[in-house]
Computed example of a mutant assay.
Amino acid sequence: MGFENPSRDQIKELLQQTKTIAVVGLSDKPDRTSYMVSQAMQSKGYRIIPVNPNVDSVLGEKSYASLADIDEQVDIVNVFRRSEDTVPVAQETLRMKHKPKAFWLQQGIFNDQAASLVQAEGIQAIMDRCIKVEDSILLPK
């Protein structure tokens, strides 16, 4: 049996319990999808932590070079990287000081190996879903 995303109810519960989202690959360019999605999530009250070694800050938040550098609880690791680049991100997620609840690959991003790595450590995996779309549908405000 192949990978299956959590149910809509499970995703809703995850989002309701989420305060902080680390966004891997968050660009400081306002025309990029990662920026637009993160800005929308921030405007809904989520704290966004940028993870991008090439920028100092995004959306008013200090950017970190890697997930392992974050010294606070992150609820979701949201990934804007190519599918083939997500296994190292999953491995880095496992090295975080505080284990997140979920590892979320944005719409169009799939990697069964990355999902298996985090799931083996009790971290929920979500693939090929836009966090902003899911939040808008499940938690409209």
Results as ranks from 00 to 15, higher is better:
1 M>W: 00
2 G>A: 12
3 F>K: 01
7 S>W: 11
8 R>V: 14
8 R>A: 14
9 D>M: 13
10 Q>C: 05
13 E>I: 09
13 E>K: 14
14 L>Y: 08
14 L>W: 07
15 L>Q: 06
15 L>N: 05
15 L>S: 00
18 T>A: 03
18 T>V: 07
18 T>W: 03
20 T>G: 08
21 I>D: 01
22 A>Q: 09
23 V>Q: 09
23 V>W: 10
23 V>P: 09
24 V>Y: 09
24 V>A: 07
25 G>I: 05
25 G>S: 08
25 G>M: 09
26 L>Y: 05
29 K>T: 10
29 K>C: 02
29 K>D: 15
29 K>R: 15
30 P>Q: 07
30 P>G: 10
31 D>V: 13
31 D>P: 03
33 T>A: 14
34 S>A: 13
34 S>D: 09
36 M>T: 02
37 V>G: 02
37 V>N: 01
39 Q>E: 15
40 A>Q: 11
43 S>D: 12
43 S>L: 13
43 S>V: 04
45 G>N: 11
46 Y>D: 04
46 Y>I: 01
46 Y>S: 03
47 R>T: 12
48 I>T: 04
49 I>S: 06
49 I>M: 01
52 N>I: 11
52 N>K: 08
52 N>C: 12
53 P>G: 13
53 P>D: 11
54 N>Y: 13
54 N>M: 13
55 V>Y: 03
56 D>C: 04
56 D>F: 00
57 S>K: 12
58 V>E: 11
58 V>W: 06
60 G>W: 07
60 G>H: 00
61 E>M: 15
62 K>Y: 02
63 S>H: 04
64 Y>H: 14
64 Y>V: 13
66 S>T: 13
66 S>I: 00
68 A>V: 07
69 D>H: 00
70 I>S: 04
70 I>W: 00
71 D>T: 15
71 D>M: 04
73 Q>R: 14
76 I>S: 09
76 I>W: 06
77 V>M: 03
77 V>C: 06
78 N>C: 11
79 V>A: 06
79 V>Q: 01
80 F>D: 07
80 F>K: 07
81 R>D: 02
82 R>V: 08
82 R>N: 13
83 S>W: 08
85 D>W: 02
88 P>I: 10
89 V>Q: 04
90 A>Y: 01
90 A>Q: 03
92 E>Y: 07
96 M>I: 12
97 K>N: 10
98 H>A: 14
98 H>C: 00
99 K>M: 13
101 K>T: 12
102 A>S: 15
102 A>K: 02
102 A>H: 03
105 L>M: 15
106 Q>M: 02
107 Q>V: 12
107 Q>Y: 13
107 Q>D: 12
109 I>E: 07
110 F>M: 07
115 A>Q: 02
117 L>G: 09
118 V>N: 06
120 A>I: 01
123 I>L: 03
124 Q>K: 13
124 Q>M: 15
124 Q>C: 14
124 Q>L: 15
125 A>P: 11
125 A>V: 08
125 A>N: 02
125 A>E: 08
127 M>I: 06
128 D>W: 10
129 R>W: 10
132 K>W: 14
132 K>H: 08
133 V>H: 06
134 E>M: 14
135 D>A: 15
136 S>T: 12
137 I>R: 12
138 L>H: 05
138 L>E: 01
138 L>W: 02
139 L>C: 05
139 L>F: 08
140 P>S: 03
140 P>A: 10
141 K>D: 10
